[in-house]
Design a binder for these strands. Structure first.
Lengths: 104, 104
DNA sequence: TAGCTATATAGCAATTTAGCTATATGACTA
DNA sequence: TAGTCATATAGCTAAATTGCTATATAGCTA
């Protein structure tokens, strides 16, 4: 009940098939999505709209999943021309993996 | 939604402060608990009773937390003289860490 | 500025999870 | 074998999570 506070937030954020799918899709934006006009697939990330389609849930539900991952620090939103693009925060993900490896 | 099935079970099992505490306590049985009579702290693990006390929940609630971790394969129960002792399954835990590292 | 479109929030129903008390099971021990 | 003690299960309530529809917000674009 000490270090656990941070670790638990990350674990809860990941413990969902929808959110695991999001992170998986974001691993290879170019392979998983068609070219984007207003944001670079790699630098900015993938349009929330497209991620929503892949999740097979309503737009608000997908938005909340994205927010959970974002709040946990695993993905980074970038606003551009009225769109929001999401990409993985590999550094944060790696930090989390290290904590898992060392603390569990 | 493919590999995720196994990974999700593990993540859900870990995403709880009580269960994280259990795993932490079991990391150092000798340091965390007094000597045991009927089971060896290291070979057999820690008596469910003592773990329950440390968890600060009722006996049935602790039993269920232990079952979740046990079902997920993270801890191993050993019955002896009417007691049940629990120890970490380090191999299983390491396998899980590897999956996390490679798949997330 | 006005309207449009993408995304976020509000608020509700259904499901899952976590806690409890009461009780059943199961296995030592006397 | 009977009794006792440790642990597991049953069954309930409260809280958290996930999904939805409806609506608000925010920021382009014309």
């Amino acid at each position: 009940m000490t270090i656990h506070i941070d670790i638990e937030i990350g674990l809860k954020a990941l413990a969902s098939d929808k959110r695991l799918l999001l992170l998986e899709l974001l691993k290879d934006p170019v392979g998983n999505f068609p070219p984007q006009v207003d944001g670079d697939l790699l630098e900015d990330g993938v349009c929330a709209n497209w991620l929503t389609e892949r999740l097979d849930v309503s737009q608000p539900t997908a938005a909340r999943h994205l927010k959970v991952l974002s709040d946990a620090g695993f993905i980074i939103p970038t606003r551009k021309k009225g769109w929001v693009f999401y990409r993985r925060d590999e550094a944060a993900i790696n930090r989390f993996k290290t904590v898992i490896r060392e603390e569990i």
